[in-house]
Every structure is written in C-alpha cells, then in structure tokens.
Design a protein around this nucleic acid. Structure first.
Length: 288
DNA sequence: AACCGAGACAACCGCAAGGCT
DNA sequence: AAGCCTTGCGGTTGTCTCGGT
C-alpha cells in the first residue's frame, strides 16, 4: 500500500495551469494516450507531476466534459444520490453525464449544502432539522402527528435498507463495468492512436429529461445505460417520497433573485475562458 | 478609487485499494 | 506472501473575481 512519490520531486511546477501547459498535455494525450501518468510529464515536456497531469486531464481537459451551470434536473439527481450514497462523489458522478466528481463535489459544497441548510434540511442526513426549521420540507412522511411520524419512521427504515442495498449493488456494478470497459479499450487501443477525429459538439441535455436517458456516460461513468436505468427507477421510487416539489419551489424562489441561475454570479471568467477555448475546437477525442 | 469580505472553483494533499513482481 | 507502484477518491486549501462599503 505504498504512496505515490511523484509529488515529492523538487523543481516541479504547482498551481494553476497555463494554456501552454494545457496544450502540451492535450497534444500529447491526443497522440499517445495518457499511458502511465507518472512518466507522462517528462514525455510531454511538462514540469508537473503525473498526478497533477491526471487531475488536470480528468477534471478539465477531457473532451467529454460538460461545463457550466447545473440544471435543476442535475441538482435533484445530486441531492437524491447524495441521500442514498453520501459523499461518494465518483459514484454520484456515474449518473450525471459529462460531470466530474470534483465538479459535483465542489457544487455540493458551495451551493447545494448551503441551500439545503437554508431550507432547514440537514445536508448530511437529508432529514429536517429538529430545530423546527423547514417544516413540511423534508422527510418522507412530512406531516405532524402520530400517524405521520409512524409513517416517517417506516419510510426512513425502508430508505436506509434501500440505501445499503443500492450502495453494495453500485459497487459491484461499477466493478463489472470497469472490467468490461478495460477489455474494450484494450481491443480498440491499436486503432485509435493517430489522426484523432474532429471534436464532438458539446452535448446539451434536454431539460427535465432523466440523466440516464441521455444515453451517454459521464466522464467517470462505469455503468451502462441499462444499469443507470435501473438506478433511475430506484431514484424515481425514492423521489416519490422526497419533498422535491418543495425543493423546486425553493429553487424557483431563489432563482428569481439570482437571474435564473443557481449561482449568484454568472459563469466565472475562468470558466468563460475554458468555454471559449473549448468552443474554438481545442478539444478533441483522445484515447484514454 | 481603494479596500475588504464572500463566493466560486481549480488544484493539491494524503489515504486507500488493487495490480504487479 | 510481501512489498512496491499506480491510480482513484474525498477532504481541504489556495487563488481569483465580484459586489458592497
């Protein structure tokens, strides 16, 4: 269980990546694939550690990444999956096409967590806070009274069981899918190296459509469409017990004061630059 | 115009799992 | 079986920008 020594070397650059570095990394991966990350920086002429290169590629440079604000559908998916899986961002990213775990994690920490807290929902347990905030917003039963609380407890027990089962199933499915993908990659590796095709146009999801229905894997996806659909059915069942209407209502209220977007600020300059760069066709498919 | 605090997000750090020798 | 190496993951930090004063 050793630890990667790649970052211990001296003389390696850290901090934000420059466009030149991005270009070098992209060009190298387009031509050769990433191969062994540890040896990549030297081959690509980068003064970075392999880990840094891998992160940059995974979270930023990959051509199959969608950037920009999250849709309401995506937010709901994140919240529901977080309720099921907790902080397992990679598993959550599996069900959000073209989103990276890092992006989802950041979005949760900077937006969703705060908003849920504001609504009186504990972002960790996804249950209404005991301080009385957010009445009628969270909880399966949602109502007051003995019958309501009994129903709530019943539903909570069911959810707990569902979450445990789903968590174990996800792990197994992810493992199987990963193996299948590796086999497929190995089979196609020889024919996918030179002459990368033109970059695909960014996929624009249909608002309101289930993520799985896009038929596309997320950047970190390890599950097939049918597997995603299976989880989607679980989510749908759970959604029936979740106060998502209240959440949507809260979103509408907040969006009316923040220009429709969930964020109070529009796309950041950094993101704007990335989008501009992507739109110029700097991205292209590359063997992973 | 300058300063300051908050928000947003890219990037880093350290740990753990799993493969390979 | 044991140790090393690579990769993946989640938590945290650093940096930049914007809005308010």
């Amino acid at each position: 269980m050793g630890r990667s020594p790649c970052c211990e070397k001296e003389g390696l650059k850290k901090g934000p990546w420059t466009p030149e570095e991005d270009q070098k990394l992209l060009a190298y991966i387009e031509q050769h694939g990433h191969g062994c990350w540890r040896s990549l920086p030297a081959k690509a002429g980068l003064q970075r550690c392999g880990k840094s290169c891998r992160l940059r590629w995974t979270n930023y440079l990959r051509p199959d990444i969608k950037r920009g604000k999250f849709s309401l559908q995506e937010e709901q998916t994140i919240i529901q999956l977080h309720a099921l899986l907790g902080n397992r961002w990679s598993a959550i990213a599996t069900h959000l096409p073209k989103r990276t775990d890092n992006e989802i994690k950041n979005y949760w920490n900077t937006h969703l967590k705060k908003r849920l807290a504001k609504m009186g929902i504990d972002p960790v347990t996804h249950k209404p806070r005991s301080d009385g905030l957010g009445v009628g917003v969270g909880g399966a039963g949602g109502g007051a009274g003995a019958a309501g609380s009994q129903q709530h407890a019943k539903a909570a027990a069911h959810l707990s069981h569902t979450a445990q089962w789903e968590s174990a199933r996800l792990e197994a499915e992810a493992r199987l899918a990963r193996e299948a993908r590796l086999r497929a990659l190995a089979a196609s590796a020889s024919s996918a190296v030179v002459a990368a095709p033109p970059p695909p146009l960014p996929h624009v999801p249909v608002p309101g459509a289930p993520a799985a229905a896009h038929g596309l894997d997320s950047p970190t996806s390890t599950l097939s469409f049918s597997e995603s659909a299976a989880l989607a059915s679980v989510l749908a069942a759970r959604a029936a017990m979740q106060p998502m209407q209240a959440y949507e209502e809260a979103c509408r209220r907040s969006s009316s004061s923040s220009s429709g977007a969930i964020t109070s600020r529009s796309t950041s300059p950094r993101t704007r630059g990335s989008l501009l760069w992507a739109s110029r066709g700097c991205f292209s498919t590359a063997p992973a």
